Amino acid sequence: MKKCCPGLPIAFVVIFAIGAFLYYQYAFTSVSKINFNEDSFYQYQENTMSLFEPKSSQYKLCFYTSSTPQSTEFLRKNTQENIILLALDLYQQGRNAKKDVYNLVELRISSVLMLKLIHEFDVRRLPQCFLLNQESKNSKLYISLKENGIYKLVNFKENKNKE
C-alpha cells in the first residue's frame, strides 16, 4: 500500500521551526530590560556624582537631547506626581539646569551603555519616554513592554484603560 502524504512530516518540522522562531522574536524582543546590578547609572547630588540606586517600583525613562530649546518643556510635560522621571541626555552635557522640573533625576551613563539602551528600547526619534516597572523577583531589574508584538495584543485592555 502506498503512503498518501510522504512530505507531511517534513512540512510539519518546517512549520514548527518557523513558529518557534517567530515566538522567540516576539517573546524576547518585545520586552526591554534594565538591570541596575549590571549597568551603572550616575546622578548629581549636592555637586558630587554618585551611583544611582533605584528605590521606587516604577520610573519613567526619557531619552532627550539638551541641544534643543524644547527639552525643558518636554521634561516638564512628562513629569507626574507619583512617578520619578529618569532623564538621559543624548549629549551627556551634565548641565543640571532643570531644577524647576519636579521629580526629575538626570542620569549620566557611558557611551557603550547609551548605545545598548538605544538598541534595547528601539529609540528612533527624540525625545521619547518609556515606563519602567520593577520585576517582582529581582528588585534591581526593571522591564518595559514595547508597543509592538504579541505583548501589545495581550495587554490591549490594560493599555486602553490607561488612556
Rank of each mutant, 00 (worst) to 15 (best):
N148E: 13
S136T: 14
S56Q: 14
A20C: 11
S110L: 01
E46F: 11
Q43F: 07
R125V: 07
N133G: 08
Y142F: 09
T79E: 06
E46D: 14
Q43G: 04
I84M: 10
N78V: 04
L126N: 03
S50G: 13
L117G: 00
H119E: 13
S66C: 03
Y44P: 11
L51M: 10
A20Q: 08
E81M: 07
E53P: 07
Q80C: 06
S110I: 01
V14L: 12
L132W: 03
L75Y: 01
S66H: 05
I15W: 08
L8I: 07
S110K: 05
S40W: 09
Y23V: 12
N155H: 13
L113P: 03
Y42A: 08
K60S: 06
D122T: 13
S110D: 04
Q58V: 08
F41Y: 04
T48Q: 14
N148M: 09
V31Y: 02
R95T: 14
L131N: 12
A27D: 04
S57Q: 15
S136W: 07
S32E: 04
V112M: 12
N78S: 01
I10C: 11
N133C: 09
L90H: 12
E135M: 09
E120D: 05
E73D: 11
K137M: 10
L51T: 11
S30P: 02
V101C: 04
L107C: 00
E106T: 02
Q43H: 09
C129W: 00
H119I: 10
E120H: 00
L85E: 01
N47F: 10
Y102L: 15
E135V: 08
N82H: 10
P69V: 12
T65S: 13
I84G: 00
V105I: 15
N78P: 03
Y102Q: 15
R76E: 07
L117N: 00
L104Y: 01
V123Y: 01
S50C: 14
K160D: 12
A27S: 07
I150K: 00
N103K: 05
D39L: 05
K60E: 04
I150H: 04
Q58W: 01
F121E: 05
Y44E: 15
Q45G: 12
Q58D: 05
S111C: 08
F41W: 03
I118D: 01
I84E: 08
G94E: 03
E81H: 08
